[in-house]
């Protein structure tokens, strides 16, 4: 509940202060978005499963963002950045869909 409120507060803070993203960070923003969505859905599912752990939630989000950014960074340097971005998005996208399906089963029992 507090986490959901904090999510809304984060969105409102972003809307109020309108921070600008440095140019060099821009390519990693889509990856960060997908990792963030994955963390949100994973966290909700863990909460519904009754195994939510705040440390795992934060550490998995931060490390997912960092690892995904590192993969894309290396890919950019080696000339396969676009393909590796796609790979990251596909893997995290599958996880998002799976977790969303699990949440749906929890909520609707269907």
């Amino acid at each position: 509940m507090i986490a959901a409120l904090a999510l809304v507060v984060g969105v409102v803070l972003g809307l109020i202060f309108r921070p600008t993203v440095p140019i060099w960070l821009e390519p990693y923003l889509p990856i960060a978005v997908v990792a963030a969505l994955d963390a949100v859905f994973g966290g909700i599912r863990a909460r519904l499963d009754g195994i939510f752990n705040a440390k795992v939630f934060v550490v998995s989000f931060v490390s997912n963002v960092l690892v995904a950014a590192l993969i894309v960074f290396l890919g950019d340097k080696l000339g396969v950045g676009g393909q590796l971005s796609t790979a990251v998005v596909v893997v995290l996208g599958i996880r998002i869909f799976g977790n969303a399906a699990a949440i749906r089963r929890h909520v609707f029992r269907a």
Binding site: I2, A3, A4, L5, A6, L7, V8, V9, G10, V11, L13, G14, L15, R18, P19, V21, E26, L29, P30, A32, V33, A36, L37, A39, V40, G43, F52, N53, A54, K55, F57, V58, F61, V62, V65
Partner: peptide, 24 residues
């Protein structure tokens, strides 16, 4: 005791990232 604030901080960070990407 810091479980709640930690989760809140993580959620705050996630919300910031999402709205940042939207605005960008």
């Amino acid at each position: 005791w810091w479980d709640g604030p930690l989760a809140a901080a993580g959620a705050l960070l996630i919300g910031l990232v999402l709205v940042l990407a939207y605005q960008q």
